[in-house]
Nucleic acid binder design. Structure first.
Length: 426
RNA sequence: GGAGAGAUAGCGAAGUGGUCAUAACGCGGCGGUCUUGAAAACCGUUUGAGGUCAAACUCACAAGGGUUCGAAUCCCUUUCUCUCCGCCA
């Protein structure tokens, strides 16, 4: 969400930005917004003046009553009644204009970062860097479910029976590995100065509508029956929600937080649930990073955030690359974002394991996250990034650490969480 | 889940239908006087959103509705906090 003042003063820049994102159908919104805003302010100004009159006269009524000037009081009452009648239609117009304005402002995209590559869709995303050597072993790498089943680590049949498609039982060493990765990720981030959080796993409707669009909500969120509560789709929802309508003192920034939560997603829409495997599922767990900082620091934090993920995967011997989202693939609220992708020796390609976003002040403006500065308050910048999200991450882990005999190597950093094991075997 | 009490600025707290709600009073914060420096004392200052060149002005007393010429104050709904009881890991 942009600042209406910015749109008013820079309509051409806003239009240029829309073109860069190949959303030409939204170009007309800019002029509409400026016109509606003009009408809204005019209408509000008029109403404010009337409300001022009403306040003044109402006060006089009290004075008249106290002095026993009944006739004067009655005359004033009549006048206020008149003002109120006039205000009814004016206030209705005010509300309507405001709603129309907001509706349009919500879909005008955030100004993208200067260095964001221009492109239509995800096929034009740009590879930034590669880390590690993407290798394909001599032997054939099985499908990840087969690797897990071979190690008695997954039971999808039972999960389908109890919960349906898109759920899983992990068991034995694979389940332990799953927990180990999260514990390691937690400690990895704590070591880098992040504050560890376990947030609520359910949030209220008003928080949901604050942190996502209606379409996202429909496609992602599970609602608890009979309650105004939703299962979170990511801990970002509760972590950012915690800052809604707050003013953070400058001295308390930056807030560098790392949160753990299970994540629940309906996955309605384009992809849906995968028939086999744990790539796209209704329930997974995630270690996340969330940063609230001063505007001038968000670029630095952005680089720091995605580098954390890269370092994390590298420490587990998984080759990764970073892919910068081009303008057309960038969500409307984001200044820039990139995907961290892990190497799959089976598919001989990279696949997404994390996503790092700089929201600029867009999210903060929408949610009222402000900083108390010396010379007044201003909107914060917010960022978020995945540290790691198993069980999807297990796919990359197992494929890259697999031996020909079906056993899986445990990289050094995980061993302490695996009871000292250096290998998972059948 | 039941019964009761409550929610006002950074914190504590007064205000119970108008005539001191930006909000008394106290604490804290900031600036200053005094001091070699500090403490103390004293003086000043200290909510946010919108609006304006700047003002004026408007809005916000947990949130949302209602009654009224006028609501922090009365009524309804919701949320949260505290005390007691019940239940539970």
């Amino acid at each position: 969400m942009l600042d209406i003042k910015f749109v008013r003063e820079n309509p051409e820049a806003v239009k240029e930005n829309i073109k860069k994102k190949f959303q030409d159908e939204k170009l007309a919104l800019v002029d509409e917004v400026i016109e509606i805003d003009r009408q809204f302010r005019e209408s509000k100004n008029k109403a404010d003046t009337l409300r001022g009159d009403r306040n003044r006269i109402s006060k006089q009524i009290g004075m008249f009553m106290a002095k026993g000037q009944k006739d004067d009081a009655e005359a004033a009452k009549a006048k206020v009644k008149e003002i109120n009648d006039e205000l009814v239609s004016l206030e209705a117009k005010e509300t309507e204009l405001e709603a129309e304005l907001k509706k349009r402002m919500m879909v005008i995209p955030q100004m993208i970062g200067k260095d964001v590559p221009i492109g239509r869709d995800d096929s034009e995303n740009v590879e930034l860097q590669k880390f590690g050597e993407p290798t394909v072993p001599e032997f054939e790498v099985p499908y990840h479910v087969d690797i897990m089943e071979n190690l008695n680590g997954i039971d999808l049949d039972s999960a389908r029976k109890t919960s349906g498609n898109g759920f899983y039982y992990l068991c034995g060493d694979i389940a332990r590995l799953h927990s180990s990765i999260l514990s390691y990720a937690r400690d990895f981030m704590i070591d880098r100065g992040f504050t560890y959080y376990i947030p609520p796993f359910m949030i209220r409707g008003e928080v949901v509508t604050g942190v996502m669009s209606f379409a996202e909500m429909e496609n992602m969120m599970y609602k608890i029956e009979g309650e105004d509560l939703y299962l979170i789709g990511t801990s970002e929802h509760s972590m950012i929600g915690k800052f809604i309508d707050t003013i953070v003192p400058e001295a308390e920034l930056p807030k560098a937080l790392t949160s753990y939560s299970p994540c629940f997603r309906k996955e309605v829409g384009a992809h849906g649930i995968e028939e086999r495997g744990v790539y796209r599922i209704h329930q997974f767990e995630k270690q996340e990073m969330v940063v609230v900082c001063k505007p001038e620091e968000s670029d630095i934090w952005y680089d720091r955030l995605w580098n954390n993920t890269v370092d994390f995967f590298r420490s587990l011997d998984i080759p990764v690359r970073t892919l910068e989202c081009c303008s057309g693939d960038l969500a409307d609220l984001k200044v820039k974002s990139l995907d961290v992708e892990a190497w799959s020796p089976r598919q001989k390609k990279y696949f997404e394991v994390g996503s790092c976003s700089n929201l600029g002040d867009a999210q903060a403006r929408r949610l009222g996250i402000r900083i108390k500065g010396k010379d007044g308050n201003y909107f914060a910048h917010t960022l978020n990034n995945t540290v790691v999200a198993p069980p999807r991450m297990l796919i990359a882990f197992l494929e890259n650490n697999l031996n020909e005999d079906g056993s899986v190597n445990i990289p050094e950093p995980l061993r302490m969480y695996m009871g000292g094991k250096s290998k998972i075997e059948k």
